[in-house]
Design a protein around this nucleic acid. Structure first.
Lengths: 220, 220
DNA sequence: ATATATTATTAGGCTCATCTAATTTATTTT
DNA sequence: AAAATAAATTAGATGAGCCTAATAATATAT
């Protein structure tokens, strides 16, 4: 059916397309999957035959609907497992990715249905990423980077755009957590650094790199 | 490190040795792993080089301590996952084996430690099989088949010797559950059928095949 | 103790997912 | 537009884990 390698290729194609749009290049896939470009060319030719991607020689690939459904289903499983790891097993949000990378490949629709129920049908994972439903449908995201906010905005921090452990740990270390309320008290035009008041208590000074990766929704 | 195939071979060798004692034959492994005898010969030569088994040509294999530790660890993971599936996700005891077969290969000592804690450090899986500790040590089993009991014995049903879905479903259908108390009211010498009073309520007539596979401990 | 039947091993090959090196195609730069 | 650089593809090979068919070793029966 769908091998481990196939699942990983489809997921990588999905994520790269989501990030950069358009066709996904051989080299980008080689980079994210840590295999040679030659291996990628080989493999995508095989999954193109299976109608999981459409492939234009030397241009790149894009998922077909069939391929997209498989990819989204893996993402659904990945995010549900992450919720479980954080909410039930007390892992931190910077510890769960690698474990979920393994769990996402376990095959059992029954299992995922029961897990979803056990977790109370969560709509987002511990990083604020939306969890698609069993049919591969995502809720419409209403968040935007804090960078796009204006002085005086009162917002709620609901997700991260960057998932690196170093960024997650930076936030934890600085006591910035999902659900926090930010009031933008000042924006420095010159370097795009933000002054925010967190939960109406501590004042924080955040770099452009940080505010670009904090996803927020306008509060009320 | 340890591939999926390797884990499955080691587990199969462990289980066959546990069941039949002595060296494990090529044909028995081929049968349980559903591969050809030639593949088994090939594979055990490889894991013998890795010192996971000791192999005597045409005699069979037996696990080394190194191999045994890996096998027991997989069994530990399998049984912990089964407990989770039944206790937390509400699966029935006849539904969990196949799912646990996949989950047991997930690699993360941290995960297993947290899962164990989340489950309250269980000592047996939903079929009454003992769960080894993280060092690969089993508690000494004190159960025996109901078949070995005598008239008048008051015992507690704590495990099954046979794990087939048909047997598990037979028990469920007949409302015989782990933890039930049996009073042996009569034994038919001729065919080894047992009359038992379950939980001091219903009287049941059990075949030899059944009483052979019900594991019990003497109550008080 | 020899013949028969069973079980195990060897020999040779296959597929999957990967690799490196060589070549071709596409994109930039001058 | 030609030259230089970058990206993608092809060709040929490898290791893991499996296969079938042929042979060898062991166990069983006569």
């Amino acid at each position: 059916m769908t091998s481990l390698a196939e699942e990983n290729y489809l997921k990588a194609i999905y994520k790269l397309h989501e990030k950069n749009g358009g066709m996904v290049s051989t080299s980008a896939l080689a980079e994210t999957l840590k295999v040679s470009a030659a291996s990628v060319t080989d493999f995508i030719k095989k999954i193109a035959v299976k109608k999981l991607v459409s492939y234009e020689k030397s241009k790149g690939v894009i998922l077909t609907e069939k391929g997209r459904l498989i990819a989204v289903n893996i993402i659904r499983k990945h995010r549900l497992w992450e919720v479980w790891l954080v909410n039930k097993l007390d892992f931190r949000w910077d510890e769960v990715h690698e474990i979920a990378e393994q769990l996402e490949h376990v095959i059992s629709d029954e299992l995922i249905a029961q897990l979803d129920k056990h977790l109370g049908y969560p709509t987002a994972d511990p990083h604020g990423d939306l969890i698609p439903d069993a049919k591969g449908h995502f809720a419409k995201s209403i968040s935007k980077p804090l960078l796009d906010c204006s002085k005086g905005d009162l917002v709620k921090f609901i997700g991260v755009a960057e998932h690196s452990n170093s960024f997650l740990q930076y936030l934890t270390k600085n006591n910035i957590n999902l659900g926090d309320e930010f009031l933008v008290t000042a924006i420095e035009e010159f370097d795009n650094t933000f002054q925010v008041k967190v939960n109406n208590k501590m004042q924080k000074h955040l770099s452009k790199e940080v505010v670009k990766n904090l996803l927020v929704v306008i509060n009320n």
